[in-house]
Amino acid sequence: MHVEVDVPRCVASGQCVLLAPDVFDQRDEDGLVVLLNENPPAELHDAVRESATVCPAAAIRLEEA
């Protein structure tokens, strides 16, 4: 799985950070998303998929292998 985030779209809802804290974080200055791991390990895939589903700004894109 390959993950991409569209930072300008992010509205800092924090949902991805709550779901997959090893993959997503937030910038200290404005709370916008930071991608920690663009190729997360298999055990995190479900949480990353759920993050992409619930992201209110559709700012998380996934490419599944």
Binding site: V11, A12, G14, V17, P21, Q26, D30
Partner: peptide
């Protein structure tokens, strides 16, 4: 306007 507050509600700050 929202951007002036987004960092206040970051998961780590909360």
């Amino acid at each position: 306007m929202r951007r002036t507050l987004t960092r206040e509600f970051m998961v780590k700050r909360i």
